[in-house]
């Protein structure tokens, strides 16, 4: 599995992109005692980053329904790293529910995933009292968690600084301007060099209501997309996300109808919720929708193609990069050398 490459001693580490991929890279390198600078073209609000629009699901078992085993492998390792670095991360599991008409999709989902237990109506009500009497059954993935991207990114940035790293916002640098080890985590902005990269649009809606409370993300079966109702702090719920082969921005009326319809199907009280925000992000994806760590001819490292799985796998990818830079270890499943 591993081959030796010459480690690059103590050269400084420059990371471009402070989204979820770059933030975890910076954190692990800074903790390893390296001289880390994280460059971000956006300001500290990170509104230009795909991560700003992410759901933040840490759901490796649910994701197994439509992704390759490597996503589960990285995801499971990443759960340990999330727990280690941010012990307050909620791991209340996730709950999968279906409208009676989507029963066939529900059974298919149960067949293609593991790590769940089947709940009856009482089981669903015991987990989520708000949903009592609404669903006859559900799948409970007890070990899954979720983070709130807009809160957790600043926390990661703080930890990077606490570990001795530097962050430069509004710093639109190019890889060839930087010395030392360069780790390019720009996502879709790295398209100039990664011609296979494409954007997959994800739309989400933020609503606010105090009539319902959920302790964990609820995933509702949908014929095309994994739709979640994710509880956030301050009575907010994120509804998302679509997955569309397009690179425009904004939210279509059709997507809005489907996302709001999903929330309404979970609980009719969502009809009374206040819409706080509509938004969309473009996920960077390679044709196989799998992540890649590419080491180019100039020995620069490119971490990209995290697709829908950024928050789920970023910590594990950072660990792989660190192992490569510090010890020359190559992960044959994820890494490619020029």
């Amino acid at each position: 599995m591993y081959q030796d490459k010459s480690p690059r001693g103590d050269s400084p580490i420059s990371i471009i992109g402070a989204g979820i991929a770059g933030a975890w890279q910076a954190l692990l390198f800074a903790q390893a005692g390296r001289d880390v600078t994280l460059h971000e073209r956006s300001d500290a609000t990170m509104t230009l980053s795909t991560s700003h629009w992410a759901g933040g699901m840490l759901a490796p078992w649910c994701e197994a329904e439509a992704s390759e085993p490597v996503i589960s492998r990285l995801g499971l390792r990443a759960l340990d790293l999330w727990r280690r670095e941010l012990p307050e991360t909620p791991f209340n599991g996730s709950l999968v529910l279906a409208h009676p008409r989507d029963r066939a999709d529900y059974e298919r989902f149960a067949r293609l995933t593991s790590g769940h237990q089947r709940l009856d109506a009482r089981g669903v009500a015991a987990l989520e009292p708000s949903l009592a009497g609404r669903f006859r059954e559900g799948l409970f993935f007890a070990a899954e968690g979720h983070v709130e991207p807009r809160r957790v990114l600043p926390k990661l940035h703080e930890k990077i600084i606490a570990a001795g790293g530097a962050i430069r916002f509004d710093s639109d640098v190019r890889a060839d301007e930087l010395d030392g080890v360069v780790i390019d985590c720009r996502g879709l902005a790295a398209r100039d060099g990664e011609r296979e990269l494409r954007g997959v649009k994800g739309e989400l809606i933020l609503v606010e209501t105090s009539e319902i409370s959920l302790s964990r993300p609820v995933r509702l079966m949908h014929p095309r997309w994994p739709l979640y109702v994710i509880p956030r702090e301050d009575h907010l719920f994120m509804l998302g996300a679509t997955s569309i082969e397009a690179e425009d921005t904004g939210v279509s009326v059709r997507s809005a109808l489907e996302l709001l319809g999903a929330a309404y199907a979970v609980h009719p009280a969502f009809a009374e919720a206040r819409i706080v925000e509509f938004g969309s992000g473009l996920r960077p994806a390679f044709p196989d929708n799998l992540p890649r760590i590419t080491i180019d001819a100039e020995e620069r490292i490119h971490v990209n193609g995290l697709y829908r799985h950024g928050f789920l796998i970023a910590p594990a990818l950072a660990e792989l990069t660190l192992n490569y830079v510090a010890r020359g270890q190559i992960d044959n499943e994820v890494m490619r050398c020029a």
Binding site: K201, P223, E245, D248, G250, V251, A285, D288, N289
Partner: peptide, 30 residues
Amino acid sequence: ALYPSPAIMQGAIRASGAQIVTVSLRREAA
């Protein structure tokens, strides 16, 4: 439509031997 990834879509279309592929115009993108 509906494949887990474009690469799997390409693989499936090749394996099917199909010479005609339907593509949807509406339904998704604004």
